[in-house]
C-alpha cells in the first residue's frame, strides 16, 4: 500500500502528464505552422525540422504588389470591430428590455427560442437569401453588408450572454434609482450600464473572435476587394499550385488577435464561453 502522501503525488503526476500531453497536442500544430511560415517551399516539401529561416513568405504576403493580404486584414478589422460594437450595443439594450420591461412571457420566450434556432442554423442556409436581398437594396459585395450579416449572426449569442449578465444586476437597484428620480433611459445609462461593463467586455471579446473567424458568409458575400482574411487564406489553399509557405504565413498572422486576447482576456473568454452555454 502506498502512503496517502505518495498516492497524492502519483495522482498529481498522472494528471499533469495527461494535461501536458494535451498541451503538446494543442501547441505543436500551431508551432509547426508558425515555423512553416519561415520556410522556403522546398523546406516544407522535405519537411525539414532544421532549416534556415527566411522572411520571403511574409515579404511576399505583406509587400508584394499582387498580394491583397493587407487589404484583407483591414477588411477583417473593419468588419469585426463594427460588428462587435453594433452587436453588443443592440444585445445589451435588448437584454435589459427583455429582462426588466415586463414584456409578455410568450413574447420573450418567442424571441429567445427564435434566436436559439437561428444561432444553430448553418449560415450557409441563408446566404442565398441575403445575397438576393443585398442585390435588391444595392449593397451587395460591400463591407457594410458583411457587417450587417455578422451582426445578425452573432446577435443570438450576444443576447444570450447579456441576458445572463443582466440577471446579476439586482432589480432593487433599478427600483431605488426610480425612486431617486431617474427616467427609464437614465436608469439604464447611470445604473445598469456601469454595472454590466465586465459582462459587455466578455461578450465583446467572444463576438469579436467569432466575427473575425466567420467564413461562410464572407466567402459567399464578398468579392476580391472586400474579402476578409479567412477567405484569403482559403484561396491560398485552393490555387492550383498550393503555396504552403504563404498560406502558413497568412494563417499565422491571422491568429494574432486570438493569441493576444488569449493572453490578455482569458478570464473574459472563459466566462463568455461558459455563460453562453450553461447558465
Amino acid at each position: 500500500m502506498l502512503t496517502i502522501k505518495a498516492q497524492k503525488r502519483l495522482g498529481g503526476f498522472i494528471r499533469h502528464s495527461w494535461l501536458m500531453l494535451s498541451v503538446f497536442a494543442i501547441l505543436f500544430p500551431f508551432l509547426w505552422i508558425a515555423l512553416s511560415g519561415f520556410k522556403r517551399e522546398i523546406d516544407i516539401a522535405m519537411s525539414r525540422i532544421s532549416f534556415a529561416p527566411v522572411w520571403s513568405n511574409y515579404e511576399e504576403l505583406l509587400f508584394s504588389k499582387s498580394s491583397t493580404y493587407l487589404t484583407n486584414f483591414l477588411n477583417s478589422v473593419i468588419v469585426s470591430f463594427s460588428a462587435t460594437v453594433l452587436c453588443v450595443g443592440i444585445a445589451t439594450l435588448a437584454a435589459h428590455s427583455l429582462r426588466r420591461h415586463k414584456w409578455p412571457i410568450f413574447a420573450v420566450s418567442a424571441i429567445l427560442i427564435f434566436s436559439m434556432i437561428f444561432n444553430m442554423t448553418p449560415a450557409m442556409t441563408l446566404v442565398g437569401a441575403w445575397h438576393s436581398l443585398f442585390v435588391k437594396v444595392g449593397i451587395n459585395n460591400t463591407l457594410f453588408a458583411l457587417i450587417l450579416v455578422n451582426v445578425v449572426l452573432l446577435l443570438p449569442m450576444a443576447l444570450w450572454l447579456m441576458m445572463t449578465f443582466m440577471r446579476d444586476v439586482p432589480e432593487e437597484l433599478e427600483e431605488a434609482a426610480a425612486i431617486d428620480g431617474c427616467t427609464p433611459a437614465e436608469i439604464f445609462r447611470k445604473i445598469v450600464l456601469p454595472l454590466v461593463v465586465p459582462g459587455m467586455m466578455a461578450t465583446s471579446v467572444i463576438v469579436f473572435v467569432f466575427s473575425w473567424n466567420e467564413f461562410q458568409a464572407a466567402l459567399t458575400l464578398t468579392t476580391k476587394a472586400t474579402q476578409t482574411v479567412p477567405v484569403a487564406i482559403a484561396k491560398f489553399a485552393q490555387e492550383y499550385e498550393v503555396k504552403h509557405g504563404a498560406m502558413a504565413a497568412a494563417a499565422t498572422l491571422s491568429t494574432i488577435p486570438a493569441v493576444m486576447l488569449m493572453l490578455v482576456a482569458t478570464r473574459y473568454i472563459v466566462s463568455g464561453l461558459t455563460n453562453g452555454a450553461i447558465k
Binding site: 494543442i26 501547441l27 500544430p29 500551431f30 509547426w32 505552422i33 512553416s36 516544407i44 473572435v209 473575425w212 473567424n213 467564413f215 482574411v229 479567412p230 477567405v231 487564406i233 482559403a234 491560398f236 489553399a237 498550393v242 504552403h244 498560406m247 502558413a248 497568412a250 494563417a251 491571422s254 491568429t255 486570438a258 493569441v259 486576447l261 488569449m262 482569458t266 473568454i269 472563459v270 464561453l273
Partner: peptide
Amino acid sequence: ILPILIPGIVIGAIWKL
C-alpha cells in the same frame, strides 16, 4: 482555449500541413 479562438479556416490550413 486557443483552438476555440482561431478561425476554422486557419485550423484547416494548420491540418493541411
